[in-house]
Amino acid sequence: MTESEAALVKQEVRVYVMVFTALAGLTVVTVAISYLHLPTVLAISVALVVATVKAGLVASYFMHLISEEKVILWLLLLCAAFLVALMALPVGTETGIAPLWPFSS
């Protein structure tokens, strides 16, 4: 391990602490918002946006995606494309048919 690399890691450590603070803060924020009882659509949107931001922070800094090689990013992009198909298409087929609970209004 060279000196300069060690210094670089030391710098990174400061980033990790900042990311942790942000994550903890966002957790508190998302919980606080849930007590406001926003309308359903808004509540879901806000919670998912906050969760995505947190996940982005973890992936970018703890998992080093921000400085990771391109090959990993391409892999994740491919994965994301299939994930979109998996998330969207089944729900699309579901909207055309009867609800799952036949005895509801």
Binding site: F82, A85, L89, G92, T93, E94, T95, G96, I97
Partner: peptide
């Protein structure tokens, strides 16, 4: 091959839009 799977399910009544897709 990831986007064709529901052609096994045409008879489930998933709706014409999705069937067409």
């Amino acid at each position: 091959s990831f986007t064709v799977w529901a052609h096994h399910m045409f008879l489930t009544g998933m709706g014409t839009t999705m069937s067409t897709f």
